[in-house]
Design a protein around this nucleic acid. Structure first.
Ligand SMILES: [Mn+2]
Ligand SMILES: [Mn+2]
Ligand SMILES: [Zn+2]
Ligand SMILES: [Zn+2]
Lengths: 151, 151
DNA sequence: GCTCCTATTGCAAGAGGTTGCAATAGCAAC
DNA sequence: GTTGCTATTGCAACCTCTTGCAATAGGAGC
Protein backbone atom coordinates (compact mmCIF):
# COMPACT_ATOMS: atom_id res chain seq x y z
CA UNK A 1 0.00 0.00 0.00
CA UNK A 2 1.06 3.54 -0.54
CA UNK A 3 1.74 4.74 2.98
CA UNK A 4 1.37 8.47 3.26
CA UNK A 5 -0.69 10.26 5.85
CA UNK A 6 -2.92 8.85 8.56
CA UNK A 7 -4.93 5.68 7.92
CA UNK A 8 -8.11 7.64 7.12
CA UNK A 9 -6.20 9.70 4.56
CA UNK A 10 -4.72 6.58 2.99
CA UNK A 11 -8.13 5.03 2.66
CA UNK A 12 -9.56 8.19 1.13
CA UNK A 13 -6.70 8.27 -1.36
CA UNK A 14 -7.46 4.74 -2.49
CA UNK A 15 -11.14 5.57 -2.82
CA UNK A 16 -10.26 8.43 -5.14
CA UNK A 17 -7.91 6.29 -7.19
CA UNK A 18 -10.58 3.67 -7.67
CA UNK A 19 -13.20 6.22 -8.73
CA UNK A 20 -10.75 7.85 -11.10
CA UNK A 21 -10.54 4.53 -12.92
CA UNK A 22 -14.26 4.00 -13.14
CA UNK A 23 -14.17 1.49 -10.30
CA UNK A 24 -16.46 1.72 -7.32
CA UNK A 25 -16.16 2.47 -3.67
CA UNK A 26 -18.17 0.00 -1.63
CA UNK A 27 -18.54 -0.75 2.07
CA UNK A 28 -16.84 -4.11 1.48
CA UNK A 29 -13.81 -2.48 -0.10
CA UNK A 30 -13.71 0.10 2.63
CA UNK A 31 -13.47 -2.67 5.22
CA UNK A 32 -10.57 -4.32 3.42
CA UNK A 33 -8.77 -1.02 3.02
CA UNK A 34 -9.22 -0.08 6.65
CA UNK A 35 -7.85 -3.42 7.76
CA UNK A 36 -4.88 -3.09 5.43
CA UNK A 37 -4.20 0.42 6.73
CA UNK A 38 -3.86 -1.02 10.24
CA UNK A 39 -1.63 -3.88 9.15
CA UNK A 40 2.15 -4.09 9.08
CA UNK A 41 4.34 -6.62 7.37
CA UNK A 42 2.86 -9.70 5.69
CA UNK A 43 -0.66 -11.07 5.64
CA UNK A 44 -2.23 -14.04 3.95
CA UNK A 45 -5.66 -13.80 2.41
CA UNK A 46 -7.13 -15.96 5.15
CA UNK A 47 -5.71 -13.71 7.87
CA UNK A 48 -7.11 -10.67 6.16
CA UNK A 49 -10.54 -12.25 5.95
CA UNK A 50 -10.41 -13.03 9.63
CA UNK A 51 -9.59 -9.41 10.45
CA UNK A 52 -12.28 -8.13 8.13
CA UNK A 53 -14.80 -10.37 9.83
CA UNK A 54 -13.85 -8.90 13.19
CA UNK A 55 -14.92 -5.55 11.77
CA UNK A 56 -17.80 -6.83 9.65
CA UNK A 57 -19.00 -10.38 10.35
CA UNK A 58 -20.79 -10.46 7.00
CA UNK A 59 -17.48 -10.45 5.13
CA UNK A 60 -17.45 -12.85 2.18
CA UNK A 61 -14.12 -14.48 1.16
CA UNK A 62 -14.56 -14.14 -2.58
CA UNK A 63 -15.22 -10.43 -2.22
CA UNK A 64 -12.04 -9.96 -0.21
CA UNK A 65 -9.94 -11.92 -2.70
CA UNK A 66 -11.38 -9.97 -5.58
CA UNK A 67 -10.63 -6.71 -3.81
CA UNK A 68 -7.06 -7.82 -3.28
CA UNK A 69 -6.80 -8.61 -6.98
CA UNK A 70 -8.02 -5.14 -7.87
CA UNK A 71 -5.63 -3.45 -5.46
CA UNK A 72 -2.78 -5.40 -6.91
CA UNK A 73 -3.81 -4.62 -10.47
CA UNK A 74 -3.76 -0.91 -9.81
CA UNK A 75 -0.41 -1.24 -8.08
CA UNK A 76 -1.41 -0.51 -4.48
CA UNK A 77 -0.46 -3.90 -3.15
CA UNK A 78 2.00 -6.67 -3.92
CA UNK A 79 2.16 -10.30 -3.03
CA UNK A 80 4.87 -12.90 -2.63
CA UNK A 81 4.65 -16.56 -1.70
CA UNK A 82 5.54 -18.12 1.60
CA UNK A 83 7.64 -21.28 1.68
CA UNK A 84 4.47 -23.34 1.41
CA UNK A 85 3.43 -21.44 -1.70
CA UNK A 86 0.59 -19.50 -0.14
CA UNK A 87 0.23 -15.90 -1.17
CA UNK A 88 1.40 -13.29 1.29
CA UNK A 89 0.54 -9.66 0.78
CA UNK A 90 3.16 -7.08 1.55
CA UNK A 91 1.82 -4.20 3.56
CA UNK A 92 3.59 -1.26 5.04
CA UNK A 93 6.21 1.32 4.32
CA UNK A 94 9.10 -1.08 3.74
CA UNK A 95 10.57 -0.98 0.29
CA UNK A 96 10.17 -3.93 -2.04
CA UNK A 97 12.09 -6.91 -0.74
CA UNK A 98 12.49 -10.65 -1.11
CA UNK A 99 12.67 -13.30 1.59
CA UNK A 100 14.97 -16.00 2.80
CA UNK A 101 13.31 -18.92 4.57
CA UNK A 102 14.90 -21.80 6.47
CA UNK A 103 13.12 -25.10 5.88
CA UNK A 104 14.79 -26.48 9.02
CA UNK A 105 13.74 -24.09 11.77
CA UNK A 106 11.14 -22.06 9.91
CA UNK A 107 12.93 -18.77 10.49
CA UNK A 108 12.85 -16.15 7.79
CA UNK A 109 14.69 -12.98 6.92
CA UNK A 110 14.24 -10.16 4.51
CA UNK A 111 16.78 -10.02 1.75
CA UNK A 112 19.20 -7.15 2.18
CA UNK A 113 18.85 -4.48 -0.47
CA UNK A 114 22.50 -4.82 -1.49
CA UNK A 115 22.11 -8.53 -2.03
CA UNK A 116 18.80 -8.05 -3.77
CA UNK A 117 20.35 -5.53 -6.11
CA UNK A 118 23.15 -7.93 -6.98
CA UNK A 119 20.67 -10.68 -7.72
CA UNK A 120 18.54 -8.45 -9.91
CA UNK A 121 21.54 -7.14 -11.81
CA UNK A 122 22.74 -10.67 -12.46
CA UNK A 123 19.43 -11.72 -14.09
CA UNK A 124 19.13 -8.43 -15.89
CA UNK A 125 22.56 -8.85 -17.46
CA UNK A 126 22.35 -12.52 -18.32
CA UNK A 127 18.75 -12.78 -19.56
CA UNK A 128 17.40 -9.25 -19.80
CA UNK A 129 15.03 -10.53 -17.13
CA UNK A 130 13.50 -8.11 -14.60
CA UNK A 131 13.10 -10.02 -11.34
CA UNK A 132 9.97 -9.34 -9.30
CA UNK A 133 11.77 -9.13 -6.02
CA UNK A 134 8.74 -8.94 -3.76
CA UNK A 135 7.45 -12.17 -5.27
CA UNK A 136 10.62 -14.05 -4.32
CA UNK A 137 11.16 -16.44 -1.43
CA UNK A 138 14.43 -18.31 -1.35
CA UNK A 139 14.13 -21.51 0.66
CA UNK A 140 17.02 -23.52 2.08
CA UNK A 141 18.81 -24.19 5.36
CA UNK A 142 20.30 -21.58 7.62
CA UNK A 143 23.73 -21.75 9.18
CA UNK A 144 22.44 -22.91 12.55
CA UNK A 145 20.37 -25.73 11.11
CA UNK A 146 23.25 -26.88 8.98
CA UNK A 147 25.76 -27.05 11.82
CA UNK A 148 23.17 -28.66 14.07
CA UNK A 149 22.48 -31.36 11.53
CA UNK A 150 26.01 -32.13 10.40
CA UNK A 151 28.24 -31.56 13.45
CA UNK B 1 13.48 -39.86 -8.83
CA UNK B 2 16.72 -41.71 -9.18
CA UNK B 3 16.78 -42.59 -12.86
CA UNK B 4 18.86 -45.66 -13.52
CA UNK B 5 17.75 -48.63 -15.57
CA UNK B 6 14.42 -49.31 -17.25
CA UNK B 7 11.18 -48.17 -15.61
CA UNK B 8 10.48 -51.62 -14.11
CA UNK B 9 13.95 -51.64 -12.57
CA UNK B 10 13.48 -48.17 -11.14
CA UNK B 11 10.21 -49.17 -9.55
CA UNK B 12 11.74 -52.31 -8.08
CA UNK B 13 14.58 -50.27 -6.64
CA UNK B 14 12.14 -47.97 -4.87
CA UNK B 15 10.22 -50.94 -3.53
CA UNK B 16 13.41 -52.28 -1.99
CA UNK B 17 14.32 -48.92 -0.51
CA UNK B 18 10.94 -48.63 1.12
CA UNK B 19 11.08 -52.12 2.58
CA UNK B 20 14.59 -51.53 3.85
CA UNK B 21 13.17 -48.69 5.93
CA UNK B 22 10.32 -50.70 7.37
CA UNK B 23 7.87 -49.01 5.00
CA UNK B 24 5.46 -51.00 2.89
CA UNK B 25 5.01 -51.75 -0.75
CA UNK B 26 1.37 -51.39 -1.72
CA UNK B 27 -0.55 -51.49 -4.99
CA UNK B 28 -1.34 -47.79 -4.54
CA UNK B 29 2.31 -46.89 -4.20
CA UNK B 30 3.18 -49.06 -7.14
CA UNK B 31 0.73 -47.11 -9.28
CA UNK B 32 2.25 -43.78 -8.27
CA UNK B 33 5.77 -45.05 -8.89
CA UNK B 34 4.88 -46.44 -12.29
CA UNK B 35 3.32 -43.17 -13.32
CA UNK B 36 6.35 -41.24 -12.10
CA UNK B 37 8.67 -43.57 -14.00
CA UNK B 38 6.85 -42.65 -17.20
CA UNK B 39 6.90 -38.93 -16.50
CA UNK B 40 9.42 -36.33 -17.61
CA UNK B 41 9.86 -32.81 -16.34
CA UNK B 42 7.41 -31.30 -13.86
CA UNK B 43 4.09 -32.52 -12.52
CA UNK B 44 1.63 -31.12 -10.04
CA UNK B 45 -0.11 -33.36 -7.56
CA UNK B 46 -3.40 -32.98 -9.39
CA UNK B 47 -1.84 -34.03 -12.70
CA UNK B 48 -0.32 -37.05 -11.07
CA UNK B 49 -3.65 -38.06 -9.60
CA UNK B 50 -5.24 -37.77 -13.00
CA UNK B 51 -2.59 -40.07 -14.52
CA UNK B 52 -2.90 -42.53 -11.68
CA UNK B 53 -6.65 -42.64 -12.18
CA UNK B 54 -6.11 -43.51 -15.83
CA UNK B 55 -4.25 -46.57 -14.62
CA UNK B 56 -6.39 -47.25 -11.55
CA UNK B 57 -9.74 -45.43 -11.38
CA UNK B 58 -9.94 -46.16 -7.66
CA UNK B 59 -7.04 -43.82 -6.93
CA UNK B 60 -7.62 -41.68 -3.85
CA UNK B 61 -6.03 -38.20 -3.69
CA UNK B 62 -4.91 -38.33 -0.07
CA UNK B 63 -3.11 -41.58 -0.70
CA UNK B 64 -1.23 -40.09 -3.64
CA UNK B 65 -0.25 -36.99 -1.71
CA UNK B 66 0.92 -39.08 1.21
CA UNK B 67 2.96 -41.24 -1.13
CA UNK B 68 4.59 -38.15 -2.59
CA UNK B 69 5.46 -36.99 0.92
CA UNK B 70 7.11 -40.30 1.67
CA UNK B 71 9.09 -40.30 -1.55
CA UNK B 72 10.28 -36.80 -0.81
CA UNK B 73 11.20 -37.69 2.76
CA UNK B 74 13.42 -40.51 1.63
CA UNK B 75 14.98 -38.29 -1.00
CA UNK B 76 13.60 -39.87 -4.17
CA UNK B 77 11.66 -36.84 -5.27
CA UNK B 78 11.86 -33.07 -4.94
CA UNK B 79 9.33 -30.32 -5.36
CA UNK B 80 9.43 -26.67 -6.26
CA UNK B 81 6.64 -24.14 -6.63
CA UNK B 82 5.18 -22.80 -9.83
CA UNK B 83 4.57 -19.08 -10.19
CA UNK B 84 1.13 -19.55 -8.67
CA UNK B 85 2.64 -21.24 -5.64
CA UNK B 86 1.42 -24.74 -6.41
CA UNK B 87 3.81 -27.57 -5.77
CA UNK B 88 5.51 -29.05 -8.79
CA UNK B 89 7.41 -32.29 -8.52
CA UNK B 90 10.65 -32.64 -10.40
CA UNK B 91 10.91 -35.89 -12.27
CA UNK B 92 13.53 -37.13 -14.63
CA UNK B 93 17.24 -37.31 -15.13
CA UNK B 94 17.93 -33.57 -15.11
CA UNK B 95 20.13 -32.37 -12.30
CA UNK B 96 18.71 -30.12 -9.59
CA UNK B 97 17.74 -26.77 -11.04
CA UNK B 98 15.71 -23.66 -10.37
CA UNK B 99 13.27 -21.84 -12.65
CA UNK B 100 12.74 -18.47 -14.19
CA UNK B 101 9.14 -17.56 -14.97
CA UNK B 102 7.78 -14.59 -16.91
CA UNK B 103 4.60 -13.17 -15.41
CA UNK B 104 3.87 -11.45 -18.71
CA UNK B 105 3.82 -14.24 -21.26
CA UNK B 106 3.91 -17.23 -18.93
CA UNK B 107 7.07 -18.64 -20.45
CA UNK B 108 9.58 -20.33 -18.19
CA UNK B 109 13.18 -21.43 -18.36
CA UNK B 110 15.46 -23.54 -16.28
CA UNK B 111 18.20 -21.70 -14.50
CA UNK B 112 21.61 -22.35 -16.02
CA UNK B 113 23.93 -24.28 -13.75
CA UNK B 114 26.56 -21.54 -13.88
CA UNK B 115 24.07 -18.93 -12.81
CA UNK B 116 22.62 -21.22 -10.19
CA UNK B 117 26.06 -21.86 -8.78
CA UNK B 118 26.74 -18.12 -8.55
CA UNK B 119 23.47 -17.56 -6.75
CA UNK B 120 24.11 -20.36 -4.28
CA UNK B 121 27.64 -19.19 -3.61
CA UNK B 122 26.41 -15.67 -2.93
CA UNK B 123 23.95 -16.80 -0.24
CA UNK B 124 26.44 -19.27 1.16
CA UNK B 125 29.04 -16.54 1.61
CA UNK B 126 26.79 -13.80 2.93
CA UNK B 127 24.52 -15.78 5.27
CA UNK B 128 25.93 -19.29 5.49
CA UNK B 129 22.62 -20.18 3.88
CA UNK B 130 22.32 -23.29 1.69
CA UNK B 131 19.77 -22.51 -1.01
CA UNK B 132 17.40 -25.29 -2.02
CA UNK B 133 17.76 -24.68 -5.72
CA UNK B 134 15.05 -27.05 -6.91
CA UNK B 135 12.55 -25.26 -4.70
CA UNK B 136 13.23 -21.92 -6.36
CA UNK B 137 11.15 -20.11 -8.95
CA UNK B 138 12.20 -16.58 -9.84
CA UNK B 139 9.28 -14.61 -11.25
CA UNK B 140 9.55 -11.41 -13.27
CA UNK B 141 9.31 -10.14 -16.82
CA UNK B 142 11.32 -11.43 -19.75
CA UNK B 143 13.09 -9.26 -22.27
CA UNK B 144 10.36 -9.63 -24.89
CA UNK B 145 7.56 -8.66 -22.54
CA UNK B 146 9.52 -5.69 -21.29
CA UNK B 147 10.24 -4.26 -24.71
CA UNK B 148 6.67 -4.99 -25.82
CA UNK B 149 5.27 -3.08 -22.87
CA UNK B 150 7.62 -0.11 -22.75
CA UNK B 151 8.68 0.60 -26.33
C1' DG C 1 0.86 -71.04 5.95
C1' DC C 2 -0.39 -68.40 10.11
C1' DT C 3 0.24 -64.56 13.53
C1' DC C 4 0.89 -60.16 15.02
C1' DC C 5 2.41 -55.52 14.84
C1' DT C 6 1.76 -51.40 12.84
C1' DA C 7 2.17 -48.88 8.37
C1' DT C 8 -1.16 -47.61 5.12
C1' DT C 9 -5.53 -46.87 3.22
C1' DG C 10 -10.26 -44.95 2.43
C1' DC C 11 -13.42 -41.82 3.89
C1' DA C 12 -15.41 -37.77 5.43
C1' DA C 13 -14.74 -33.21 6.95
C1' DG C 14 -12.37 -29.00 6.54
C1' DA C 15 -9.14 -25.23 5.02
C1' DG C 16 -8.06 -21.93 1.57
C1' DG C 17 -9.14 -20.23 -2.91
C1' DT C 18 -11.50 -19.51 -7.48
C1' DT C 19 -15.31 -18.92 -10.70
C1' DG C 20 -19.95 -18.28 -13.13
C1' DC C 21 -24.12 -16.11 -12.62
C1' DA C 22 -28.17 -13.52 -11.30
C1' DA C 23 -29.32 -9.79 -8.22
C1' DT C 24 -27.74 -5.45 -6.25
C1' DA C 25 -26.11 -1.02 -5.84
C1' DG C 26 -22.43 2.76 -7.05
C1' DC C 27 -22.27 6.91 -9.30
C1' DA C 28 -22.40 9.98 -13.45
C1' DA C 29 -25.61 12.41 -15.97
C1' DC C 30 -29.73 14.66 -16.16
C1' DG D 1 -34.10 13.30 -6.73
C1' DT D 2 -34.41 9.96 -10.73
C1' DT D 3 -32.59 7.10 -14.24
C1' DG D 4 -29.59 3.96 -16.41
C1' DC D 5 -25.39 1.66 -17.15
C1' DT D 6 -22.43 -1.64 -15.46
C1' DA D 7 -19.09 -2.71 -11.67
C1' DT D 8 -19.63 -5.46 -7.59
C1' DT D 9 -21.57 -8.54 -4.57
C1' DG D 10 -23.36 -12.90 -2.52
C1' DC D 11 -23.97 -17.45 -3.32
C1' DA D 12 -23.23 -22.01 -4.57
C1' DA D 13 -20.43 -25.17 -6.76
C1' DC D 14 -15.94 -26.56 -7.52
C1' DC D 15 -10.81 -27.28 -7.16
C1' DT D 16 -6.58 -28.65 -4.79
C1' DC D 17 -4.86 -30.27 -0.71
C1' DT D 18 -4.67 -31.77 4.33
C1' DT D 19 -5.97 -34.25 8.45
C1' DG D 20 -8.07 -37.48 12.00
C1' DC D 21 -9.71 -41.90 12.55
C1' DA D 22 -11.23 -46.60 12.22
C1' DA D 23 -10.60 -50.50 9.21
C1' DT D 24 -7.32 -52.99 6.33
C1' DA D 25 -3.45 -55.38 4.91
C1' DG D 26 1.93 -55.68 4.26
C1' DG D 27 5.53 -58.62 5.66
C1' DA D 28 8.80 -60.33 9.37
C1' DG D 29 9.09 -64.04 12.32
C1' DC D 30 7.71 -68.43 13.47
MN1 LIG E 1 7.59 -26.14 -0.77
MN1 LIG F 1 2.17 -15.14 -7.26
ZN1 LIG G 1 17.15 -22.83 10.31
ZN1 LIG H 1 7.45 -12.83 -21.10
Amino acid sequence: MARNGSPPDQVAAVRDQLRARGLRWTPQRRTVLEVLAETQGHVTGAELIERCRARDPATIPSTVYRTLDVLEEIGLLRHGHGPDGREEFHVGPEPEHGHLHCAGCGASWELGSDEAAALMTAFEDSHGFAVDLSHLTVVGRCRDCRTANAP
